[in-house]
């Protein structure tokens, strides 16, 4: 069982908190403390809006240990509105409906269990943007 490893990245996974570079303004996710654009230190927290589009995707039929019970599931590179690419699962969508360029939004979902007795790991995933049709 791992606990501290998951706890450390809670803010990134629950709230999509990355960083913004104080020198060049680049938005960074996942946080890496050194700006990938200008190589200067960048430690200012920045909360991403959670909107983006599918850059690429794949559906997994042979899962790594811990994810067997979720197959088939779809993973993607999502291009966030603020710039960076993020790797995440897609949810609430059938594989045949996924397209490159499809607008998606961040939701918080269960990722997997750390074994039968271990903690539940929650994280960002992305789903097709839901538009309100009621009002």
């Amino acid at each position: 069982m791992e606990v501290s490893r998951f706890w450390r990245t809670t803010k990134q996974r629950y709230q999509l908190i990355g960083e913004v570079c104080g020198h060049c303004g680049t938005k960074i996710f996942p946080p890496r403390d050194v700006c990938p654009s200008c190589d200067l230190e960048a430690k200012t927290p920045f909360e991403f809006g959670g909107k983006g589009e599918v850059f690429s995707y794949s559906t997994i039929h042979q899962a790594p240990a811990g994810f067997e019970k979720y197959v088939p599931y779809t993973v993607a590179l999502v291009k966030l509105e603020e710039g960076p690419l993020i790797t995440a699962q897609l949810t609430d969508v059938d594989e045949c409906d996924v397209k490159i360029g499809m607008p998606v939004e961040m939701v918080t979902r269960a990722l997997r269990e750390d074994g039968e007795r271990g903690m539940l790991i929650y994280s960002y995933k992305f789903r097709p943007v839901m538009e309100s049709k009621s009002i």
Partner: peptide
Amino acid sequence: PGLDEDVATMSIE
């Protein structure tokens, strides 16, 4: 609920 949903995730949304 989907396989990745529970009371925590639904409450968050």
